[in-house]
């Protein structure tokens, strides 16, 4: 049983790409990603849309245990042509949910100073966003902005601050929530308030 992917691949993936690009260009700003596709649970439609837009046969994918079901793997293989790898260090896209123990960012492909693009992107599926939380600043943000993600604690933000410190190498994060997407590229500086 395979769920449907984009109904019009060219148009739908272009819309999704636009939303992801906007989210990347404006770190921490929540962007609508309205897509109609069937995704195998527990994959959200927005998570599936990001996968089908960004992944292909040249991008090995790694999944956390909650996502690593036969149906999800088959879905990614069928619609994206993406190989699912058991080795996180060779994955270009790592899919995770906020309810799980997250893989440490430093385990993921970091890229090199010569080729910083050869790094992994973490696609983190969450339940929603909040306006308060950490303060983000850097490219794409005027001054600084508050950003919060349901279910993520200080450990995550500390790890992401350490990730930013390695710039230009390091990973980028795309958060997916129902109908929404936001991003945290490695270029974004993160200030963690005392009481997060």
């Amino acid at each position: 049983m395979t769920e449907h992917g984009f109904s019009d691949v060219a148009v739908d993936s272009a819309h999704a790409f636009r939303a992801i690009m906007q989210a990347m260009a404006r770190p921490g700003r929540v962007t609508d990603l309205a897509v109609r596709l069937d995704a195998p649970a527990p994959l959200l439609a927005s998570t599936a849309a990001v996968a089908l837009t960004l992944c292909d046969f040249q991008t090995p994918v790694w999944l956390t245990p909650a996502l690593r079901s036969d149906r999800v793997m088959h879905y990614l293989r069928f619609h994206a042509g993406a190989p699912v790898t058991p080795e996180i260090e060779s994955a270009q896209f790592v899919f995770a949910t906020a309810e799980e123990v997250l893989p440490a960012p430093e385990l993921l492909l970091q890229g090199t100073h010569e080729y910083p693009d050869r790094s992994a992107t973490l696609i983190l599926q969450v339940t929603g966003f909040a306006a308060d939380g950490v303060r983000l600043s850097g490219p794409g943000i005027r001054g600084s902005e508050g950003f919060g993600v349901a279910g993520l604690d200080a450990r995550f933000w500390t790890a992401m601050a350490a990730n930013h410190a390695c710039f230009p190498v390091g990973i980028d994060v795309i958060f997916t929530a129902p109908g929404q997407v936001a991003a945290l590229p490695r270029s974004t500086e993160i200030r963690i308030p005392e009481a997060v």
Binding site: T2, H4, G5, S7, D8, V9, F78, H79
Partner: peptide, 8 residues
């Protein structure tokens, strides 16, 4: 039948 993937 359904088209699982339209011709591409």
């Amino acid at each position: 039948y359904d088209l699982l993937r339209a011709p591409e």
